[in-house]
Each structure stands twice: as structure tokens, then as C-alpha cells.
């Protein structure tokens, strides 16, 4: 792939040379790859990342576009209207709110550590970040626009056009360039500086008594699913949360058509969970305490309820002290620097 790109570059160069007689020589553009600081204990980045590795100007273009309200049909909503930086790029609404106050199907997930994910969205409907942006752009309840409409608006903006040139070598605005730059920006959104991370890295920080006990309970009762440094094993499970009765919802089965996946959702990362209330695929729970109370009282039974629950009387029993400590621990996953940037 790399070699192929090189070849294209080479042919481009030949063309330039061969017709440069009366044209001024074009200066080859420089756009270095961004060096991301990825903690050693994080999983490997995914394959799509390598095909679209973040570059300096790609990322700055992507960031600019992420905050650009012209992506919505009436210029009122940007990606960042739903994915709010101070909420770890989630928001505080039960379900997403798009143009004209339209209410979407699902809760807005945070955008963090996506370079390490193999699936996107609650149901894993997308496998590559570059394939994701078209969904909010065209969805009636989100931005309700179209890619030609967006391209038309961007073309009018000479500053943006200039940024495309810097990022891609010429000023053509294409759908792929839009998606790729957005993805490049998202790849750089890495959250790895929480109190938890500092404790794990022995950065001279330690857990409080309560956090330490919460961490222990977490490892016993939660880490089978909320595992790895991403706090998700990226599997799909039905854990008996209250059901979204909208006929467009089927959980993972919406994609696979397999009824064994009915109302199963991707295990969410719990990083920065303090900032992303309410919780659940359509915001069923207002607080972390509500989630834990629900686990303790018992979840909805169904044929495909996850075994962890099925074999424990459809619940995760938790004492009041355990709940308190678990919440204290989950708050150590807050990355104050990440939500400020």
C-alpha cells in the first residue's frame, strides 16, 4: 500500500517535471506524520489507522471540520455539538439531539481511544472510522445534509480550501478527504492520563482507600467485560438493561441479523465515564449509582442474557459500600487534561 502511494507520488512528480516548461515549479508539499504518544500497555492500533495515519495538516483540517456547523443542513450543528470536548466528546442528553431538536435513536458515545477499536457505534455497524462520518451527515435526526451539500459549502471557504491543499497536496475537496481528515483528528484523541493511569504507571500517585477497594471489586465483578486498558473487551453482550422499544433498535442484531445478538451492545469503555452521564444505549440511567443499583436489584431476563448474569440470578450483587467504592474507582478513570484540550 505504502509502495503504491509512493508510485502515485512518483508518477505525479514525473508529470510535474514533464510539463513544467512554462509553469512555475510546484513546491513539493510537506506534511509530516503526527507522532502520537501511545502508552505501552494499550492494545495495538487497528489496521485502518495505518492506511490513514494522522498527519500534521490532516489533523488540523479534521479538527476544523469537526467543529464546523456547515455539516448540518441548516448550519446549526457540528460534530462537536453532540460530541462535546468537555464531556469527553459525549454529551449529557439521554438520546442525541440533531437539527430542529430532532431526537435520535441512541445515546452519544464519547470519542476517545478510537485508534484502538475494531468496531464503532453501539452495535459495531462500522469497522473503519473513515466510513463513519457519512452517517451523522445524512441522518434525518442528526445533521440531515448530504455530502455534496457539505462539499458545496466548504468550497466557498478559501481558508478551508487552503487547508485541504496543505493536508492533501492540492485543493480538491473530496468525500474521502473529508472523512479521512475527520478520522485522523479522532485518532489523535487518546485519553491515557487519568489518576488510574498514573497509579498503574507508578507516577507517584496512589489510590485512596475507597478507590483501591473499588478497583478490587471491579476486577472481580466487572473486568470480565470491561477489560484491557480501554475498559472494554469489544464484545457484544445483552446485559438486560431496560429495552429501547423503538423498532429501529435491535442492538448488534440490527447489523448481523442474528437473533442471538438481539439487544446486545458493545461493552462501553468506562474511561471518563464521570463526564458522560446519562448511561446506557439510550440514556436509561441518570447516574452511575443508578446503574449499580440496577445490577444489584436484577436485570431483565432474556434467552440471550449474558451468562455472567444468568448464572448469578440475573444480577450482580453489590453492597452499598461496594457501590460507593466502585464509583470512586470509576472516577479515577477521569482524564482532566483530555476533557480540557
Amino acid at each position: 500500500m505504502k509502495a503504491f502511494k509512493f508510485l502515485i507520488g512518483y508518477i505525479g512528480f514525473l508529470l510535474l517535471v514533464s510539463c513544467s516548461t512554462d509553469n512555475p515549479v510546484t513546491i513539493p508539499f510537506e506534511n509530516p506524520e503526527v507522532i502520537l504518544s501511545i502508552p505501552e500497555n494499550f492494545p495495538e492500533v487497528n489496521n485502518a489507522f495505518y492506511a490513514n495515519a494522522p498527519t500534521q495538516y490532516g489533523v488540523s483540517l479534521g479538527k476544523k471540520l469537526f467543529f464546523d456547523k456547515r455539516f448540518s443542513t441548516d448550519n446549526t450543528i457540528s460534530c462537536a455539538s453532540c460530541h462535546i470536548p468537555s464531556n469527553a466528546f459525549a454529551d449529557n442528553k439521554p438520546q442525541a439531539i440533531g437539527v430542529e431538536g430532532r431526537i435520535g435513536l441512541r445515546n452519544v458515545p464519547p470519542i476517545q481511544n478510537l485508534a484502538f477499536m475494531r468496531f464503532y457505534n453501539w452495535d459495531g455497524s462500522k469497522l473503519e472510522l473513515e466510513n463513519q462520518p457519512l452517517v451523522p451527515i445524512i441522518t434525518h435526526e442528526e445533521m440531515d445534509s448530504s455530502i455534496l451539500e457539505v462539499m458545496g459549502k466548504l468550497k466557498e471557504d478559501s481558508e478551508i480550501v487552503e487547508m485541504f491543499s496543505k493536508a492533501f497536496g492540492d485543493d480538491e475537496i473530496t468525500p474521502y478527504r473529508i472523512y479521512a481528515s475527520l478520522a485522523q483528528y479522532e485518532y489523535t484523541l487518546i485519553s491515557s492520563n487519568s489518576v488510574y493511569d498514573q497509579v498503574i504507571r507508578n507516577d507517584g500517585v496512589s489510590f485512596t482507600e475507597s478507590e483501591a477497594q473499588g478497583y478490587e471489586t471491579f476486577q472481580q465483578k466487572c473486568a470480565s467485560c470491561h477489560s484491557t486498558e480501554l475498559f472494554t473487551d469489544q464484545s457484544y453482550r445483552n446485559i438486560g438493561f431496560p429495552i429501547n422499544t423503538d423498532s429501529n433498535e435491535a442492538g448488534r442484531a440490527r447489523v448481523t441479523g442474528n437473533m442471538e445478538d438481539y439487544m446486545s451492545f458493545r461493552v462501553p469503555s468506562l474511561r471518563n465515564v464521570e463526564f458522560t452521564a446519562p448511561y446506557g444505549s439510550f440514556g436509561q440511567f441518570a447516574t452511575l449509582k443508578d446503574v449499580l443499583d440496577y445490577f444489584d436489584e436484577g436485570v431483565l431476563f432474556s434467552e440471550n442474557l449474558d451468562d455472567t448474569f444468568k448464572s448469578n440470578g440475573n444480577r450482580i450483587a453489590l453492597s452499598d459500600a461496594e457501590k460507593e467504592n466502585l464509583i470512586a474507582f470509576m472516577k479515577t478513570l477521569s482524564d482532566s487534561k483530555f476533557v480540557q484540550d
Binding site: 423498532s247 429501529n248 435491535a250 440490527r254 441479523g257
Partner: peptide, 12 residues
Amino acid sequence: ATPSIHTAANMV
């Protein structure tokens, strides 16, 4: 089959 098929579930 549910009378509302808006996803891949049951669609086939």
C-alpha cells in the same frame, strides 16, 4: 416475525 422490520434482525 415482528411486523416492524427496520433492522437486519428477522429481515432475511
